[in-house]
């Protein structure tokens, strides 16, 4: 379900350094790095290593050799790091992010708030397809949704998870599935494991 006809659905690319950039920041969700893949990522970014900073986020962030490496416990720390950035980022800088969709968009949104444009941000989806779902009715965000229909963490309605995606919220739209005929809930499928 990573590809869809719905045009709001983002598409993602393989990461490779944009040689026109001046400083390069690579942010990786540690859980999404398969054994051995970090070395291959290091090889990919070797051409810009002198101007590369890498932030490894989460538990199994192993591996070395990606410019200056900084380890962060979780994505909230990335958001904080951007929000309190004492070093200003430059208009020529590039940001590369690898992780699950909720991770990618948490980082992209924090970067956009301090002025990064979409062209400066390269996103690569890796790991689980789990989704962040925004409830249209109570506006609560439900994390880690892997099923086609999910129970809203706020109002507990059964939400049909649509492919319509908001970059601002970093979330998919969830709409009550049995509003027209209460109780008529279709079979739940594991769609975004």
């Amino acid at each position: 379900m990573l590809h869809s006809d719905i045009k709001s659905r983002p598409t993602y690319t393989q990461l490779e350094p944009d040689l026109s950039g001046s400083q390069h920041l690579l942010i990786v969700e540690g859980d999404t790095v398969l054994p051995g893949r970090l070395d291959s990522l290091a090889g990919t970014f070797a051409p810009v290593e002198e101007n590369l900073h890498t932030w490894l986020v989460g538990t199994q962030a192993g591996g070395l050799g990606l410019g200056k490496v900084w380890r962060l416990p979780e994505v909230a720390d990335v958001v904080d790091a951007f929000a309190c950035a004492t070093r200003g980022y430059g208009i020529g800088d590039r940001l590369y992010v690898q992780g699950t969709e909720p991770f990618l968009w948490s980082v992209a949104k924090a970067a956009a708030i301090i002025g990064f444009s979409a062209e400066q941000i390269h996103l690569h989806h890796a790991g689980s397809l789990r989704r962040r779902v925004w409830c249209t009715h109570c506006h609560t965000v439900t994390e880690n949704v892997t099923t086609s229909i999910a129970s809203c963490a706020g109002c507990h309605r059964h939400l049909l998870v649509r492919d319509h995606f908001s970059r601002r919220l970093g979330a998919f739209m969830g709409v009550m599935v049995d509003a027209e005929a209460p109780g008529e809930v279709p079979a739940v499928e594991e769609s975004f494991a």
Partner: peptide
Amino acid sequence: PESYPEWG
């Protein structure tokens, strides 16, 4: 969509 549970 916000009020869909009411008019659905």
